[in-house]
């Protein structure tokens, strides 16, 4: 029984870490994979999602709908940001990093000035259960299922819809896609919007579990970048595999030595990994598949 409880604890920590990495990285990975743009304001987009979710929840809207509204709100915000800033920076990845960083500074400090240091958020729903002598949150287990179903949903979007086909065409060869009649600029705008929506959704999902502050996004910042870094260019394969692998590293180190070492370990493993396989897991897997063919 003791062993079972311990094993369950380890599994729970791993799944928790896995879903955290996947959810925080998924929006960033879509935008990077399709547009080669790293959205440094990604964490702040999540923060915006969390704020919208909390505000809706406080206005009496059920949590589920509040989270959906958060995602839609951030999606619209992403559309505006794309039209105002990002669309002028297509094909200039370094400049877009600097510009999105500017946006992130404005958002963090702007929220601090407008709404103060703390904001009342929803409490964690669904209660908890006991295994061995530890408490586990049901909501966190639910997040794991949501993360997995989001991945499946993303797979469906990109592999089985017309939008997915066009966006993959844009990703593989922008000029060719546009000469065959795909409006690649619009694809980029939609991609940025979808990526923002995923960021808002993730922010809303984590709103009940964390303190809602203007620096909400910084909790996700490093994890999301590292997941995308290790995952490489392919938002589907890369994110899943690197989320899984980094989840093992993070939960293992956190279990043994505490959360801070878990985060540092994540960074060091990522740097070593990139030294060995510069194109991340997507590059590694694509290479293996090419060899089979």
């Amino acid at each position: 029984m003791e062993i079972f409880a311990n094993l369950f604890n380890i599994l729970y920590q791993f799944l928790d870490s896995f879903s955290f990495l996947i959810l925080s990285a998924i929006g960033l990975a879509i935008i990077f994979g399709m547009m080669r743009i790293i959205n440094l304001a990604h964490g702040e987009f999540m923060m915006l999602g969390a704020y919208i979710t909390s505000a809706c929840y406080l206005a009496g809207i059920p949590l589920l709908f509040a989270i959906i509204l958060g995602a839609i709100g951030v999606g619209i915000f992403g559309l505006i940001i794309d039209r105002l800033v990002i669309c002028h920076l297509y094909g200039r990845p370094l400049d877009s990093v600097v510009a999105t960083w500017g946006i992130s500074l404005i958002m963090t400090q702007g929220f601090l000035i407008l709404l103060g240091a703390t904001f009342e958020g929803p409490s964690t729903p669904l209660g908890s259960f006991v295994v061995g002598d530890r408490n586990y949150s049901v909501y966190r287990i639910l997040l794991v299922f949501i993360a997995i179903s989001l991945l499946i949903f993303m797979y469906w979007i990109f592999m089985h819809t017309k939008f997915g086909l066009k966006s993959r065409a844009t990703m593989q060869n922008n000029e060719m896609a546009s000469s065959l009649g795909t409006n690649t600029k619009r694809m980029n705008t939609i991609t940025f919007m979808v990526g923002s929506m995923f960021a808002g959704l993730a922010g809303g999902l984590y709103a009940p579990t964390m303190a809602i502050t203007p620096s909400f996004g910084s909790a996700f910042l490093m994890e999301s970048f590292i997941t995308v870094l290790v995952g490489g260019a392919n938002p589907l394969i890369g994110t899943v595999v690197s989320g899984g692998a980094l989840g093992v590293v993070n939960s293992g180190l956190s279990y043994l030595y505490g959360t801070f070492i878990g985060r540092v370990g994540l960074l060091i493993v990522a740097i070593l990994f990139i030294r060995l396989w510069p194109f991340g897991f997507s590059g590694l897997i694509e290479k293996k598949m090419m060899r089979v063919k």
Partner: peptide, 29 residues
């Protein structure tokens, strides 16, 4: 580690940002 690993452009920015943040968090605790 960065350049011999072939990391370039945007990702240099990300790695250096993460290193800086980890160092700052480490020193403040």
């Amino acid at each position: 580690f960065i350049f011999y690993g072939g990391v370039n452009d945007v990702f240099v920015g990300l790695i250096t940002l993460c290193v800086t943040l980890v160092l700052a968090t480490f020193m403040s605790q």
